[in-house]
Design a protein around this nucleic acid. Structure first.
Lengths: 140, 140
DNA sequence: GTTGTATAATTAGAATACTAATTATACGAA
DNA sequence: TTCGTATAATTAGTATTCTAATTATACAAC
């Protein structure tokens, strides 16, 4: 049986490739789907929060958002009384893309979960959550 | 509960960060550990095979190997009667790094598997293998 | 109020990753 | 033998990712 770290790398890599193959059909680059998927349910978040959830550095997010802004997918706005943070909103075009991306993620999750019972899927997710907690504690 | 694609991304990302934090202490960059870990048990593979196992494109491997060759970690050699493929071997220095990297992977796998029984770990690996098979079939 | 510290975003520079196109080699069929 | 196709590695160009350093803002303590 393969090692855990290899299986994590491989399963993530395959999922990433599946999503990207669909995302590029609607004109998105590889870094954009996860951002749109987050904004789909958390529009108006500040950049630090988005970066943290997406497991990328704030500096990385800057360059992705810049491209998304140029492509007309998002807008960044300040809020009254806070000139330090920037809050990210989708345009109409961005929302359309986000809806499609959300569907793609959902569809490939279902694909990945084939040949498993519902309780196996739940067990897989539970154990992956334990893995995340274990490594998060160790990362400090 | 989080979605499967998010848990795969997060668990892989945390593992990657753990490994890289150790790898950089011994002078490695982020793309090198997985190559060395593969060579540890498969020295003498050609580039196409390495790239395939590591889930990266051959073109990406070229730039990683170039840097590893310059740092004196590996050598690439031709074999009698095949001037098309290049086969990758570790130097003494490369082998030392590979041994340490192999230990790091092992150590973080154990860390990730804490708070699980042995049968839970096996079940996790089995289900991840199913995920890989499902997505591999869909990727075509 | 001024000063010091903390926080959010950005910039610069290097490494990794992709695709598409190119070069070189191998090999089967006409 | 030569021609066409397939394969392995590389190059070029773009996007993502990181760290370290910088800029701008916020806020607490004096």
């Amino acid at each position: 049986m393969e090692s855990l770290h290899y299986l994590l790398m491989k399963s993530h890599s395959l999922m990433q490739k599946c999503i990207f193959s669909q995302a590029q059909k609607i004109g998105l680059t590889s870094g954009q789907p996860k951002i749109l998927d987050y904004l789909y349910e958390h529009e108006g978040s500040d950049q630090k929060t988005i970066a943290s959830y997406c497991e990328i550095e704030p500096a990385t997010l800057v360059s992705i958002l810049l491209r998304m802004e140029q492509k007309g997918l998002i807008e960044r706005r300040q809020k009254e009384g806070n000139r330090r943070s920037l809050f990210v909103y989708m345009t109409e075009k961005g929302r359309n893309s986000a809806e499609q991306i959300h569907m793609f993620f959902d569809q490939y999750d279902k694909e990945a979960e084939k040949n498993m019972t519902e309780s196996e899927v739940n067990e897989l997710k539970r154990l992956l959550t334990v893995v995340c907690e274990n490594l998060n504690r160790k990362e400090k």
